[in-house]
């Protein structure tokens, strides 16, 4: 079954969506959209470093995404407005990544695969990496769900209940870095934060409580992955952007439903 590249692609898309949906809900609730951008753009730098040192790409992106996420978490609240600082970090990570990649001829030729994903080329080991990462992210979120949600609602209330908000932030940071590493192959560095934010935003209007919103975000993301893949086949469009476009249409429908 896994011999069919289409099945592998569909499973890869669903795997990413299942992790990115619930995590994306937290990204939306905590207004961390730029944080997601900074972390995912740093992935390109991770690709360059991994290829230069002949390490697995997944490991390189994971390491750089972790460093970036930790940097952002540490720098936040140190004088700069958060959006300014994240704007600086997100775009410089991307720029340095692209510069680093230019020193590696093998990647240079294939740059768009790293920027926009190459879901149709997902191999069986890639698939294992994606599902292992997605399972790790979901396990982290489930394990910490109540504490994460309390800390997201109000940090002081959480602290008064014996929850350490800094620890919960760290958990989310870790989950974000893993998701970036996992999603790189599927939608590419530029569109990872789209897979975090758009399904969650689409789910917002349809949910009255956090859990349904997270679940819906996962389902919308999975649906968008399949629809995007289908569109990519039918119209010969790039798969990663088609998936994000499908998610955006789901958001539009949800927004219209909310109005109605």
């Amino acid at each position: 079954m896994l011999d069919d590249f289409l099945i592998r692609a569909a499973l890869a898309g669903i795997g990413v969506a299942l992790a990115a949906g619930p995590l994306g809900a937290f990204v939306v609730w905590r207004r961390m959209a730029y944080f997601g951008d900074a972390t995912s753009h740093a992935a390109i730098l991770g690709v360059a470093l991994a290829l230069a040192t002949e390490l697995p790409v997944g490991l390189g992106t994971l390491a750089v995404a972790l460093v970036m996420a930790a940097t952002v978490a540490t720098l936040s609240g140190r004088g700069w407005a958060m959006d300014t600082m994240l704007g600086v970090l997100a775009h410089s990570a991307l720029a340095f990544g692209l510069v680093a990649v230019s020193f590696l001829p093998s990647v240079r030729t294939d740059l768009s695969a790293w920027l926009f994903g190459d879901i149709l080329a997902v191999s069986v080991p890639d698939l294992a990496f994606i599902w292992a990462g997605a399972a790790l992210v979901l396990a982290l979120l489930l394990w910490r769900w109540s504490a994460l949600l309390t800390a997201t609602t109000n940090e002081d209330l959480a602290a008064a209940s014996g929850i350490d908000p800094a620890r919960e932030r760290l958990i989310l940071t870790l989950a974000l870095a893993v998701t970036v590493a996992v999603a790189l192959k599927v939608v590419g560095a530029l569109l990872i934060s789209a897979m975090l934010i758009i399904p969650a935003a689409a789910a917002r209007g349809l949910a009255r409580n956090p859990e349904p919103m997270a679940l819906l975000a996962a389902l919308i993301g999975a649906g968008a992955s399949l629809a995007g893949l289908g569109a990519s086949l039918a119209f010969d469009t790039p798969a990663g952007p088609s998936i994000v476009a499908a998610a955006a249409l789901a958001f539009l429908v949800s927004a219209l439903l909310r109005r109605a």
């Binding site: 939306v28 609730w29 905590r30 207004r31 109540s146 504490a147 949600l149 309390t150 997201t152 609602t153 109000n154 002081d156 209330l157 959480a158 008064a160 209940s161 929850i163 935003a201 917002r204 949910a207 009255r208 409580n209 956090p210 349904p212 919103m213």
Partner: peptide
């Protein structure tokens, strides 16, 4: 503990009943 003016972000759907169930 009842904190000062708690702001709940509009992006977070949360009913009063669910809020009372946090964290336990």
């Amino acid at each position: 503990y009842v904190p000062q003016r708690l702001q709940v972000d509009g992006t977070l759907p949360l009913t009063a009943a669910r809020f009372l169930s946090l964290p336990r």
